[in-house]
Amino acid sequence: MSMLEIDDLHVVVDGKEILKGITLSIPAGEVHAVMGPNGSGKATLSYTLAGRAGYEVTRGRILYRGEDLTALKPEERAAKGMFLALQYPVEIPGVVTLNFLKTALNAQRRARGEPEVDALRTLKLVREKATALKIGEDMLKRPLNAGFSGGEKKRLEILQMALFEPKLAILDETDSGLDIDALKLVADGVNMLRAPDRAMLVITHYQRLLSHIVPDRVHVLAKGRIVKSGGADLALELEQRGYEQVAAA
């Protein structure tokens, strides 16, 4: 079964068409990568999938587990099991990280008609997942992302992914701002979450993340269209030959 089915997707931002007919299908259990140069529409694709206001779908559709997402709000998509790890997680001073995790977890559970979890149970759940990502309790007590290093922010994104257990995870430029050790830590976290009932879309500019998170398929995005698709080797080819040559071939 297809977890995500994107069909001829056109998206307009500020009156300008950024995505010009994207077609893409990700089956459950697979990890797909979308690679593209700056300005190719990568961020637009991830924001559109998550339902951000201002990203207008003018043609085509997005099917998530067979359901058309286009009219759903971001919070509704999240409750249905979609997760977007942001390139730049937002700093929110005044909201304690652990409280945020509990609020988000319970908002999703409430929307699904599941019972809420109390603070103690949340803490236990978070602790289980946090250790592998080397996230200490002190980090959870700090305000959300405020003053976190690049690595800390990305680890917290992956912690949320582990906590919310999404069916579809979209990782937007998760490698940006990470040194080699942090990259490996984050990639290991993602790999642990690979599962037969979960699909992932890894959006990235560089090949290096894909050495750690090896994708089943690679798609090349250029000027708002998928211009080439292939196996994991395609990422290496891009790294060696550059986007222009591969896109033209």
Partner: peptide, 9 residues
């Protein structure tokens, strides 16, 4: 958007 994308209405 960040909070909503994490499921908070």
């Amino acid at each position: 958007f960040y909070l909503r994308a994490r499921g908070i209405p």
